[in-house]
Design a protein around this nucleic acid. Structure first.
Lengths: 379, 379
DNA sequence: CAGACTTATTTCAGTGGGTAAAATTACGTT
DNA sequence: AACGTAATTTTACCCACTGAAATAAGTCTG
């Protein structure tokens, strides 16, 4: 239907914002003639719209933007227990959302999800674009073709044909992706990092997840294990190195994940819920401060490793809102800066952001959006 | 002259070894018809040759291989003081070599290099391929177009137009690259890692250099600073963290570089030359053992970080031959394995290799070779 | 050993994704 | 109204590549 030319145009406009035909020709290295034809197709299909006239000398250029009703996308997050289902437009605006219990039995899970998808679609305004696909974000490993869940400890799944089953029930194409990968793809498509060809994202939750966009593409690692920053070693002296559930010692996860923070709080006789712990720290409680300090500096240390090895243009750290506004953040930033090579003007920037409820589901939806907008081989 | 089709064929054959036309069609996703035409051109130009008949059922397939006399390439290493100049064939065989003092004054340096290049070319057998280009491997930062040395502390150069000057003097196209980058490109083209789309290389010398091939392409980092593994932090507890020349504390380089090993040996009143130190360690000297052990485990620790963050298919560590056959290697491997997530069958493999005198020059030559074989946009 | 079969390679007439340049459009300015 | 400028469209053409048919060069089989 659409050729790479069409998809490249959509890619540029989604990432860089509205552009004129002449801009696109320059940007993509195509002739104005080709752009003209591609754009006509996209206008006819109701995917682009002529948006704004820019006056200077000569004929005004007309910027082309994505139509909000070009299409719509379903995103499903299985990251935490209430599973989240969202319906978004091509700009990442949430048109409808829903939460349902996350079943671990595949059959029942998919059946509930399919029903929720129907409800979400019916619940949305009538004048939205045709829904073109479903993205699923789930913890664990996923096959390279984005169809099969190879293994997920959290869900207890092995070799579950998620795409096949869910596609059968809903009649829509389904794309499955690891949850943190989905997050960074969402950041790339819907977020502020669209122009960056090289950046990394780290998610701090019960565990720690990381992923990288390299050369504008998701980098999975050779065995699909890139982004195991959680198990990057931070404690060199084995006396202090805590044992990790992975069997090794000194992993970042043993110091900086929410689980480990809660564990440390419990051992110190403090409340193990994060908001309470941060409240205590704010009152100056030395134990609470010590725990948060240690966690923050461990993460900063791990991020410094990442920056030294990959030199991304930016690192986005996504975390609980409470955590983001606590000592944790400050220490994290300080410690990272203390361990990163100083080269003025060419440093990687650190962006701290609080995760929303829909972050993962939005990321999932962005994968379906990518497939619609950019075509199949942009994986 | 040659289209991407030709270059893709050469790329496949260089990396994967001789292949039949049908293999190439399948491998590159082109029709047999196109391959036929491209191959005819390459045979006519004397770049490929029909090599071997493979008999099975049906018409035997004929494998196509690179002709050794298709072309020849100059590689210049400015990595250490005697600069090395080699002339190689397309397989990375050294046809002639020469060493000259490494001048730091650009004018004089280039003039000497140009003369050495002429001598090397004259010195080689007469029946070799036309020399098509010069690669230069040098410490420091290089512009993205591979022409200018932006900054090199070791040479004291800033914004030196290496390609321009050397090209003027020799009449050959010149490609400049950071030394460690040249190393990994040589490994990719001439070495055993050609098939790997994702691998990393770490060089242990006076400093520590690292680079990554991601998706078959050299990854430089967003500011050209990927591969600063040397300044990745390994010492978490600041009491033990040594100050690094970069201004931070606890960098890998403060523990595992040859400089730091020699420094530690000197402080302990031991001989500061590596072979002697290793000799001592072999006799069981506790101080020598301690120093080598600490260096090895620091590097293993850093490599574990790299593996966790990037998940390469393999990590090649290039070092002094003596070092490679010492405790250092064993400890390095152990420490890395102790800190890498265990996932059977999908681990990154560690390859230890001793650096030869020509390693950097060969890497440099491989860049000229890449340009000839793969065309300009493969950077 | 002839003919059947199999597989590799070449030939050849399209096709689709582009390009380059001329023509057209739509503004401002004089 | 005429002119200058820059954006866009039209038009004629190019070329890399495809798919199918033809050809080549072997093995296998009765």
């Amino acid at each position: 239907m659409f050729s790479t030319g069409h998809h490249r145009i959509l890619s540029a406009i989604t990432r860089l914002g509205p552009k004129s035909r002449t801009d696109l020709a320059r940007l993509l290295g195509l002739s104005k003639g080709s752009i003209s034809i591609f754009v006509r197709d996209l206008l006819e299909q109701g995917i682009l719209k002529e948006q704004e006239l820019i006056f200077s000398q000569g004929r005004p250029s007309v910027t082309l933007g994505l139509r909000s009703d070009a299409a719509s996308f379903i995103g499903i997050s299985l990251h935490t227990d209430p599973a989240t289902i969202v319906l978004t437009d091509p700009h990442g605006e949430v048109l409808a959302r829903r939460q349902i219990p996350r079943e671990t039995d595949p059959e029942r899970c998919f059946s509930l999800l399919a029903k929720a998808v129907q409800k979400v679609r019916r619940h949305a305004e009538p004048n939205i674009g045709l829904t073109t696909g479903i993205g699923v974000a789930q913890p664990g490993f996923v096959s390279r073709d984005r169809r099969i869940c190879l293994a997920s400890a959290a869900l207890g799944w092995r070799n579950v044909d998620v795409a096949g089953e869910l596609s059968e029930l809903t009649g829509l194409p389904v794309f499955v992706e690891n949850d943190t990968n989905a997050l960074i793809l969402g950041e790339q498509l819907f977020g502020a990092s669209g122009e960056c060809p090289n950046f990394s994202l780290v998610f701090v939750g019960d565990g720690i997840g990381s992923t990288h966009i390299i050369d504008s593409r998701l980098y999975r690692g050779h065995h699909g294990g890139a982004g195991e920053l959680a198990h990057s070693p931070v404690a060199f002296d084995l006396q202090n190195a805590l044992p990790c559930r992975c069997g090794n010692r000194g992993c970042l996860e043993t110091l900086a994940s929410l689980q480990s923070i809660k564990g440390a709080a419990r051992s110190a006789g403090l409340p193990s819920e994060i908001p309470e712990l941060i409240g205590l720290a704010n009152t100056g409680d030395p134990d609470a401060l010590r725990i948060l300090h240690r966690a923050g500096s461990a993460l900063g240390f791990g991020l410094a490793q990442l920056v030294q090895i990959l030199d991304p243009s930016q690192v986005v750290v996504l975390m609980d809102a409470a955590l983001k506004d606590s000592v944790f953040s400050n220490v994290l930033r300080q410690e990272m800066e203390a361990h990163v090579l100083k080269r003025p003007g060419t440093q990687s920037t650190l962006i701290l952001r609080s995760a929303s409820n829909d972050s993962f589901a939005l990321g999932a939806a962005s994968i379906a959006a990518q497939h619609f907008l950019f075509g199949i081989d942009w994986i």
